[in-house]
C-alpha cells in the first residue's frame, strides 16, 4: 500500500508541475528586475517579490526597495479600460448566452420535432466556423453598420462563439436529466412553467458551468477583439496586453497583466471543481 501511495503522490506532483509550471515561468517575470530579465540563462526564481509591475500597469510609479523607480506604463490606460470593458462585455455576453442557450439546449435535448437533426447540424456548423475566416465579413459588416470599435459590436460577435459552443455542451447535459416532464404534465405544469420552476432549479449546476464557460470564452477572446476593437475605447484586456508586444517590450508589465487576466477565471475554476460530479455526459447510474 505504501508503494502505491508514494507512486500516487509522485503522480500528483508531476501533474501539478505540468499544469502550473508554464504559468509560473511566465508570470515569474512580473517579479524579476529589469537586470534579471536580461540575464542569460534566466534565473529559476526572482530574488525579491515586489509588486511594482502591478502598480505600473495600473498607472502608478513604484519605488523598489533597491532604490530605483519604475515608471507607470504607457499602456496603463488601455489596461484599466481593458479590465473594465472585459468585465462588462463578458458579463453581458454570459447573461445573454444563458438566456439564449438554456431554452435552446433544453428544446434540442428533451423534445422531438421535425428537422431537429438538420438544425443541430446548423449549430455544429456554427461551432466549426473558424473566426479567421469570418473576420473580414464581420469587419466589413461592422464598418457599414458603424459597429466597429463598439462594445455592442464585440458582444454580438462574441455571442456567435459562445452560443453554439455552450449549446453543444448543455444539450448533452440536459439529455441526462431524469424525464420529469412527464410527471410535470400529469401534475398540470405547462411547458413554460415546467422549464422555469422545475428544470432550471434541477439543472443549476450545469447552467453554472455553462455560465463560466461563456464568461471565459468572452473574457479570453482575442482574434475578433484584435480586429474589431483594438485601440478603441471598447478595447478588452487581451488586446491591451498585445500592446506590450509592440515596439517597446516590457516583459515585466506583460507578465503582470497576464496574471490579471488569469485571476477571474482562476476564481471560477475553484468554484467549478466542486460541481464536477454534476457534469457527466452519460446516464447517471440510478
Amino acid at each position: 500500500m505504501a508503494k502505491r501511495s508514494i507512486f500516487l503522490y509522485l503522480a500528483i506532483a508531476v501533474a501539478i508541475v505540468w499544469s502550473i509550471f508554464p504559468i509560473y515561468w511566465f508570470c515569474r517575470m512580473a517579479f524579476l528586475t529589469p537586470n534579471e530579465i536580461r540575464l542569460f540563462p534566466q534565473p529559476f526564481m526572482p530574488q525579491v517579490f515586489e509588486f511594482g509591475t502591478f502598480y505600473n500597469i495600473f498607472g502608478y510609479d513604484y519605488e523598489y526597495a533597491a532604490g530605483y523607480v519604475s515608471g507607470a506604463s504607457g499602456q496603463s490606460n488601455q489596461i484599466i479600460r481593458g479590465v473594465l470593458n472585459g468585465l462588462f462585455i463578458s458579463s453581458i455576453v454570459t447573461v445573454i448566452t444563458l438566456l439564449i442557450v438554456v431554452p435552446l439546449a433544453y428544446v434540442f435535448a428533451r423534445m422531438e420535432f421535425r428537422h431537429k437533426q438538420k438544425l443541430l447540424f446548423a449549430v455544429l456548423l456554427a461551432v466549426a466556423l473558424p473566426p479567421v475566416s469570418t473576420l473580414i465579413p464581420f469587419y466589413s459588416m461592422y464598418v457599414q453598420l458603424g459597429l466597429n470599435g463598439t462594445r455592442f459590436g464585440l458582444i454580438v460577435v462574441t455571442l456567435t462563439i459562445t452560443v453554439p459552443f455552450v449549446a453543444w455542451m448543455l444539450i448533452g447535459y440536459f439529455r441526462n436529466l431524469p424525464p420529469i416532464e412527464r410527471l410535470a404534465r400529469i401534475d398540470g405544469y405547462s411547458r413554460t412553467s415546467c422549464l422555469l420552476t422545475l428544470i432550471l432549479p434541477l439543472a443549476k449546476s450545469g447552467i453554472a458551468v455553462a455560465a463560466v464557460i461563456a464568461f471565459l470564452f468572452s473574457w479570453n477572446e482575442y482574434t475578433y477583439a484584435l480586429v474589431l476593437v483594438n485601440g478603441t475605447s471598447a478595447n478588452t484586456l487581451p488586446t491591451a496586453i498585445s500592446g506590450f508586444l509592440g515596439q517597446y517590450p516590457e516583459p515585466g508589465n506583460l507578465a503582470a497583466s497576464v496574471i490579471v487576466t488569469i485571476i477571474p477565471p482562476a476564481l471560477f475554476a475553484y468554484f467549478l471543481q466542486r460541481h464536477v460530479t454534476e457534469m457527466s455526459l452519460v446516464d447517471p447510474v440510478r
Binding site: P178, R182, L183
Partner: peptide
C-alpha cells in the same frame, strides 16, 4: 412511472 420517478431536487 418506471423506477418511481420523482422530482429529484
Amino acid at each position: 412511472f418506471q423506477s418511481s420517478l420523482l422530482y429529484p431536487h
